[in-house]
């Protein structure tokens, strides 16, 4: 599905991605982990075309994505911070995103499952952070795309919504979708991820299942395993 070859990215003097190679096959949930500044967001944004790499190539379904935009119709993205135009209503925002994409949307079920009906005519500027995140999720999941990229999807969600989110993610996985997730909530990763991609200093440090990671680091739980990698590498 996604093939990343020798990806380099520098911001000024800071090297964020340093010859990164990664292949992600179709189907399954991939958690992209790593300490702060390891290049998770840069990697995701490179795939989305928001960050333009200095060197290397990114192939999506066999075609290079650099300076392209049509391919984005085949992926859904959940941005980290949900901040929308304050003076548009929820319905208008959903309508806008529907206008922008040629695909058939399916937003009614999602609105219902996140209990957003009472907010539909409210202005986005008046919504709470959690509600905004729910709107954000609706926007992401309302299209049927092969690739779904979620950047910190759990931020600000109440437990009920979190359960619903997990269900949606698992449903999508069942349909054979490829899902990339970045998060700091390790229990969430443990519960949901099939594979972990661990970034360190702009490169892939580890790629494999949760179980493999635990075995490799000889730790009982994921949080400690991760902590060990980071400290071991830095001390």
């Amino acid at each position: 599905m996604i093939e990343i070859k020798n990806l380099h990215k520098k911001f000024g003097k800071l090297t964020v991605l340093d010859g990164l190679d990664l292949e992600i096959k179709t189907g399954g949930i991939f958690a992209i982990l790593g300490p702060n500044g390891s290049g998770k967001t840069t990697l995701i944004k490179s795939i989305l075309g928001m960050v333009i790499p200095n060197k290397g190539d990114i192939l999506f379904q066999g075609k290079s994505v650099l300076q392209e935009w049509e391919y984005r119709d085949h992926l859904n993205y959940l941005p980290q911070i949900a901040n929308f135009p304050a003076n548009l209503s929820v319905t208008e925002l959903i309508q806008m995103v529907k206008d922008l994409r040629p695909k058939e949307p399916n937003e009614e079920d999602l609105i219902r499952s996140f209990d957003l009906e009472p907010f539909l005519d409210k202005k986005l500027g008046n919504l709470s952070g959690g509600t905004k995140q729910k709107v954000n999720l609706v926007l992401t999941f309302m299209f049927d795309s092969e690739l779904i990229i979620l950047d910190e999807p759990t931020t600000g969600l109440d437990p009920i919504s979190l359960i619903r989110l997990k269900k949606i993610i698992n449903d999508e996985k069942a349909k054979g979708k490829t899902i990339l997730i970045t998060t700091h909530i390790m229990s969430f990763v443990e519960e949901i991820a099939d594979k972990i991609v661990f970034l360190l200093d702009g490169n892939i440090y580890f790629k494999g299942s949760v179980k493999e990671l635990k075995e490799k680091t000889n730790q009982q739980d994921l949080e400690h395993a991760i902590a060990k990698i980071i400290s071991g590498n830095h001390v």
Partner: peptide, 16 residues
């Protein structure tokens, strides 16, 4: 102010 919203738009299939 619309930086985050712009990011959402950038992930849509539209030219920058």
């Amino acid at each position: 102010n619309s930086k985050e919203f712009t990011e959402l738009l950038l992930a849509q299939p539209i030219k920058r």
